[in-house]
């Protein structure tokens, strides 16, 4: 197996793991962690295509990963603040128990 396909397979497996976690775990924090794993899998794809792609001198994949990391940091900060706000309101971080949004 060549290195590019190996990277893509690792990334696909990581994405599937994150998706399974986000779909099955009941803690809102772990759902967010699963989403972070999926974002990281996408970043690994960008790096792999930058490294083994035809025009690495344009730095496109690398810079996309840097911007993506910044967006993910903002997303994690806002997401965890939302989880804290919901926890203060409903005293739980279990997504299967948070069933109402109004009131």
């Amino acid at each position: 197996m060549n290195p590019l396909a190996g990277c893509l397979l690792v990334s696909a497996l990581l994405f599937a793991i994150g998706l399974a976690g986000a779909l099955t775990r009941r803690s809102a924090i772990l759902v967010l962690a699963g989403i972070e794993l999926m974002l990281n899998a996408a970043n690994l794809n960008f790096i792999a295509f930058w490294r083994f792609g035809p025009h690495p001198e344009a730095l496109t994949g690398l810079l996309f990963v840097i911007f993506s990391i910044a967006v993910a940091a903002a997303e994690a900060a806002v997401g965890l603040a939302l989880i804290l706000a919901i926890y203060r309101f409903s005293r739980t971080s279990d997504v299967s128990e948070i069933t109402e949004m109004k009131g």
């Binding site: 990391i69 993910a72 994690a76």
Partner: peptide, 30 residues
């Protein structure tokens, strides 16, 4: 390992340094 030094170090700083700590804080606060 893939040759992206800047992205690797940014990942180390942002994820291992900041987001992991943030998640631990959120777990303990909830």
């Amino acid at each position: 390992n893939l040759g992206a030094e800047f992205a690797g170090l940014a990942q180390l700083l942002v994820y291992v340094g900041a987001i992991a700590i943030l998640i631990v804080f959120a777990i303990l606060l909830t």
